[in-house]
Each structure stands twice: as structure tokens, then as C-alpha cells.
């Protein structure tokens, strides 16, 4: 994995937010490199700056110091030709149908209506949304909404896909199935995925690498390589051992984030 060329490089990034009660340091000297085609997961206690980091990669959050390079070039703003983001709450436009939501990015880029309709319609199959093209978000289940949001990101066909707790709001069974589905998409499209989750199991089942972050101010505490083949089974000895290791790292940070109290 480390042999593949680097597509993302985060170098010594620090971020402070100015709040009414003074500055809050969200990230402190964070460095991380991700190779092309990797499925890299960020995991860490709540408030440690995972969303902030993704926001920087997506060009939505300015940084105070350090550098963020995508494809060797510094990020200066949203770049929908290279990076697509899936947000935690699906963020679908309620006045657009499934198809129109999936088309959104292409529409902004000025792709002719017929072409983008074709692209979106073709995506509905793998999204498992065939027959829901004309439905509005309020008529869809939580899992479907999330798939529409992922479809919207896939439609603009970027090399990089940023996913901020995309399945966080789903029940466990749906979540497992969505994970399998995402894995399938990732392996077919060969995109580079940066994935944020709070679920150890999800991280272990999906990732090629897992970056554990410290409590705020966020730093990269350690990076775990998961070199196993897909599909993975949680029950396999290797994963069970990895899980124990991952949990001990995260437990420490989560405890710190809660102020040492349970």
C-alpha cells in the first residue's frame, strides 16, 4: 500500500477556531500521507478535529499553518473535479428528486441535461435506487438517503472521496450492509477514500489503513495497517487481535476527551 504514489499529503497542519470564549485549537501539527487507491479511516474521540481535517481536504476550512496537498497541489478551495465529499447528515436538497440530487454536481459544472441524466440514471442501479428516481428525500429511508448522497458524490467521478461518518445515523444492520456495498463500489472504482467513523468494527472491516487521532487538539496518534483481503470477517483471529489493539489506543484518548471521568 505504501508503495502506491501519494495522492494526499497533510503536512504539519494546525487549526485554531476563534470562538466567543477564546481560541480553540482543533488540530495541532497533524501530518498524514495517503496513497492512491487507499481506503484510509480517521477515528478518534468526538471533537478531536476529524471533520475539520476533512473540511481542509475538501477546501471548505482554511488552515492556519502547514500545508495540505492534493495531487501534489496545495488546496485553496473546493475542487469538485478532484474531491467529492459525503457529509454526515446526507444534506440532500429536499426539493430535488433522487435523480436530480444525484445530478447536482454535474449540473453545477454545466454538463448538458441529457448527459448528466444518463450518468445519474446509470448510477441508480449500483446505488440500489432503481425505481426511486422520481422520489423526494422525504419519501426515502435513512439508508436510501445516504446512498443518494453517495451517488451525488460518485456522479462527479473524482479520484478522491471524503466521507464524514456517512453511516453514523443508521441502525446497525443497515450500517453493515451499507459497508459491504461501499466496499464493492470502492473496489470497482478504485477511488481513494478518506473515511471518518466512530465504529471500530466499520473501520476494521473497510480500511486499508486506520489513523487514530488524539483528543483535542487533534494529532495523529498512530496508524494501523490492515493488510487483510476482502471480504473480511469480524470473527477472524487476525481482526480480533487488531480490534483489541485499536480499542486500547482509542480508549485512552476517549477517556482523555471526557476529562478522565467515566
Amino acid at each position: 500500500m505504501t508503495a502506491s504514489p501519494r495522492i494526499i499529503a497533510i503536512e504539519n497542519v494546525t487549526k485554531r477556531y476563534l470562538t466567543s470564549s477564546g481560541p480553540v485549537e482543533a488540530l495541532h501539527e497533524v501530518s498524514l500521507a495517503v496513497g492512491e487507491g487507499e481506503f484510509c479511516t480517521l477515528i478518534g474521540p468526538s471533537g478531536c478535529g476529524k471533520s475539520t481535517l476533512l473540511g481542509m481536504l475538501g477546501g471548505l476550512v482554511p488552515l492556519d499553518s502547514g500545508r495540505v496537498l492534493v495531487d501534489g497541489q496545495p488546496v485553496t478551495g473546493p475542487d469538485p473535479r478532484r474531491v467529492a465529499t459525503v457529509f454526515q447528515d446526507a444534506g440532500l436538497f429536499p426539493w430535488r428528486t433522487t435523480l436530480e440530487n444525484v445530478e447536482f454536481g454535474l449540473e453545477l459544472q454545466g454538463v448538458p441535461a441529457e448527459r448528466r441524466r444518463g450518468v445519474a440514471t446509470e448510477l441508480l442501479g449500483p446505488l440500489g435506487l432503481r425505481g426511486f428516481a422520481g422520489k423526494y428525500p422525504r419519501e426515502l429511508s435513512g439508508g436510501m438517503k445516504q446512498r443518494v448522497a453517495i451517488g451525488r458524490a460518485l456522479a462527479i467521478d473524482t479520484k478522491i472521496l471524503l466521507m464524514d461518518e456517512p453511516f453514523g445515523a443508521l441502525d446497525e444492520q443497515t450500517r453493515l450492509l451499507m459497508g459491504e456495498w461501499l466496499l464493492d463500489i470502492w473496489r470497482r472504482t478504485k477511488k481513494t477514500v478518506i473515511f471518518v467513523t466512530h465504529s471500530l468494527q466499520e473501520a476494521l472491516l473497510l480500511s486499508t489503513r486506520i489513523a487514530v487521532m488524539t483528543a483535542r487538539p487533534g494529532r495523529i496518534k498512530s496508524v494501523l495497517e490492515v493488510g487483510m483481503d476482502y471480504p473480511r470477517l469480524m470473527e477472524s483471529g487476525e481482526l480480533v487481535a487488531l480490534r483489541a489493539k485499536l480499542w486500547s489506543e482509542i480508549r485512552e484518548e476517549s477517556l482523555r476527551a471526557m476529562g478522565g471521568r467515566l
Binding site: 477546501g59 471548505l60 473546493p78 475542487d79 469538485p80 474531491v83 457529509f87 444534506g91
Partner: peptide, 15 residues
């Protein structure tokens, strides 16, 4: 207006 929608649009490069 839901701030997320604005963020989504920005991330897709909306002018």
C-alpha cells in the same frame, strides 16, 4: 436555511 445544504453546494463548487 439548513447550513449543511450551503456547505454541500460550496463543496460541489457552486458559484
Amino acid at each position: 436555511v439548513d447550513r449543511t445544504l450551503v456547505t454541500v453546494a460550496r463543496s460541489y463548487g457552486a458559484t
